[in-house]
Design a protein around this nucleic acid. Structure first.
Lengths: 227, 227
DNA sequence: CGGCGCCGATTGGTTGACCATTCGGGGTGA
DNA sequence: TCACCCCGAATGGTCAACCAATCGGCGCCG
């Protein structure tokens, strides 16, 4: 399993709405926000800095890099942004519908207790998300942990690309007004159903719950063309 | 690369004569060797670990990863070769089992007559392939056309990555003796079944045929590990 | 009134001690 | 004699305190 903090930080940045060159909260604040110690957060920041995504300056703060293309990152980032330009939201959701139910099924077999605990935490956090963008970050993380729990590194990599494309596409239709999801948002209970199936190690139920979740999200996208 | 410690660590590893899987000195020793503090060394180790070059185990030590990580291109090819190193043949086949039946179902709805004709040509050509490697090329093309016929550019891109990884993995275990598939090779009829379902626009049958095809290939891989 | 400089708050960076995990060796009992 | 268990050393992981650099405001002085 990979570094959970790094994953959370990546998704927080995505959900934060920060643009290139913007300043991140201080390490101490960000650690509190993510619920991790400063040292643990620091480990993730070091990796992002080495990838070229961040710039850290003593006495000033931590900034998102100005360059869009990481010079020596994993290379997957460039492919993602490239794909995002020729992909629509509907295609992205349909691709998720193909991949993620199967990932959920595998995750039901292979998820570790730590991963299940993390999913539980995220499920609760999403219910009280104050803004849509913070919700998006948590949601991305939820699905990514399921992908990593599936135990197939290749499928996980494909899902990461897919999720990256989806995040870019979602960004495009983010409105400035951002009140956050209302308490009755359909995804809350759907996430709960997925998580419950994973905890029961019921692969078929997990797969079905994931499919239902994505289909209801897709339906919401097509009926209310907010984007 | 601006981090001097990281550079020194990389060079030390190269000059150390250590092989894959070997254990590095402890953080405290290595810090003394390189003349840096443990924290500073640790920063470099974190980066190398995130890059996949190291594995660190509490209570045991720090080890060179089994796979090396040479420099890579930045495009999709680099991502493919990167993924191929951390993916086994079984994982690759399982990923195909997730993706390709769904692609076949979509292709049954959306394939153009020209695509069906091309698939027909490939199916015939594969039956008379003189060598395994030429057969592999035709087979890759067959599956890639189905992916493109599905009509979802994102899924097609994912499949292209998947197919790239599979080709690398398959090549690895190619023997020098290469008589080509014998006339009774199971895939011939399975390809025919897929193509037939596509021509009938029968999505369910196409999906089932594709799944059966991949499963029989996976079974052949697991029973006769020679390839 | 304007420029200069100091001072403190804030930031990322560093340090040393401490914690959790793993492994192996020696003692103990069957 | 062998198996088991326990304990201590070694290892990577974590933490809280402290350091150095930076910036902004305030006051002093020209």
């Amino acid at each position: 399993m990979q570094d959970m903090t790094l994953m959370r930080l990546r998704n927080w940045i995505v959900g934060s709405g920060l643009a290139r060159g913007d300043r991140l909260p201080s390490e101490r604040e960000l650690g509190t926000l993510l619920g991790v110690s400063r040292a643990e957060l620091r480990k993730a920041l070091i990796v992002l800095e080495a990838e070229g995504g961040l710039e850290r300056l003593v006495g000033r703060g931590t900034f998102l890099a100005k360059q869009s293309r990481p010079a020596r990152g994993s290379g997957i980032e460039g492919v993602i942004s490239e794909l995002a330009e020729s992909t629509g939201p509907i295609d992205a959701m349909n691709a998720r519908l193909v991949l993620e139910p199967e990932l959920a099924q595998l995750a039901a077999l292979n998820a570790t207790p730590a991963q299940l605990r993390e999913l539980r935490r995220l499920s609760n956090a999403m219910r009280v998300a104050a803004t849509w963008s913070s919700y998006e970050g948590l949601d991305s993380e939820f699905h990514e942990i399921i992908a990593s729990a599936a135990g197939n590194s290749l499928l996980q990599a494909l899902h990461r690309m897919l999720n990256g494309v989806r995040q870019i596409v979602v960004w495009r239709r983010l409105e400035t007004s951002d009140p956050g999801p209302d308490p009755g948002y359909h995804s809350f209970d759907e996430h709960e159903a997925i998580l419950s199936a994973l905890e029961r190690r019921d692969g078929a139920a997990a797969s079905a719950a994931m499919r239902a979740h994505l289909q209801s999200t897709l339906a919401a996208m097509t009926t209310s063309p907010a984007g």
